[in-house]
Design a protein around this nucleic acid. Structure first.
Lengths: 177, 177
DNA sequence: ACCTGAACACCGTTCAAGT
DNA sequence: ACCTGAACACCGTTCAAGT
């Protein structure tokens, strides 16, 4: 709050005239970032639309990690979140998902997306410190499999890896039984 | 640190004799919690073993949210993490995954698991405050689909929902082409 | 209705001093 | 090698006071 106030050139306590506390300010900032997401076409191919949507989420999270951390602490329900969620859910219903199945697919895809993004961010941080080096040396003889896979485990994930998992999930759904 | 020191009945700065800083203490605590996970059978059916493993992770995260938050800030590589990871990765290799595919499957399953757990925790918190109520009223006429699905969106997820997504992911892999 | 500074109750960590 | 208290540089937020 003090930092934001300083950036705004006012006293820290002035903020509290416009916002209840730090948490709701964070919610507002995250919801603001959500507006960057593409607006989906409810009539488009649902798999293509979902891929667009969660790929954009992935990019947003990697670009602005704080958004991921905020969303993970409580679910957003701000205006932009609803505005982007509305056509996304519509696309699923139109494709033949029933209400429960649409929400379930949406949250499963969303869960995978935050999880994968956070994992990617965490590993990026670990690389910046010396954690991956420590990792590789620790496991010498006691953990042969971990050591054998160490290069793969510490390698940066890359967007294609995220996409492969997303595709697996997308392909597992069959909205019109 | 002050809190931990108080719990231990010593001065805050005494901790720094045994631990570099707060972050590594958190890592040690999370790695300690990891020991609670089951030790997998490398020769068991890989799908059953993975289901066991990540189901346990899900339970651990829900029971001790701090573990999830720590793991999301940088990947663990402590002794217990390696001890549990070793047979898990072994099971995948034995099942016919090649090195890259084993790591990819493992991290995809892990990503989904943290993501789903964090989402569940966030919604639990939101229920405790009045966020879900606010959510339901906001979306009246502008967001018909969100409103129609509001009950599903705010309902507690439950373990079965996590399991269904996990199964989708597990079934998507075919280690022996 | 909006802004302010001082103060409160916290943090993690540095530093100099002890045993 | 281990522990300590004082101090530093921070936090978010309450409160009383201003316009």
């Amino acid at each position: 709050m003090r930092r934001v106030a300083q950036e705004l050139g006012c006293a820290a306590m002035s903020l509290y005239e416009h916002v209840e506390n730090k948490d709701v300010l964070l919610d507002l900032m995250a919801d603001h970032a959500i507006a960057w997401l593409p607006e989906l076409d409810p009539a488009g191919d649902w798999r293509a639309e979902m891929r667009r949507f969660f790929t954009a989420f992935h990019e947003l999270y990697l670009e602005h990690p704080a958004v991921a951390y905020v969303m993970v602490h409580r679910p957003l329900a701000g205006p932009n979140t609803l505005r982007r969620g509305e056509p996304a859910l519509q696309a699923l219903l139109r494709a033949g998902f029933d209400d429960a199945a649409a929400v379930e697919a949406f949250t499963a895809l969303g869960s995978y997306t935050v999880g994968a993004s956070l994992y990617e961010l965490a590993r990026r941080d670990a690389d910046r410190s010396g954690a991956s080096r420590r990792f590789a040396t620790l496991s010498a003889t006691d953990f042969p499999t971990v050591q054998r896979l160490a290069a793969h485990l510490t390698a940066a994930a890359g967007a294609h890896q995220f996409h492969r998992g997303l595709t697996r999930l997308l392909d597992s759904y069959d909205p019109a039984p």
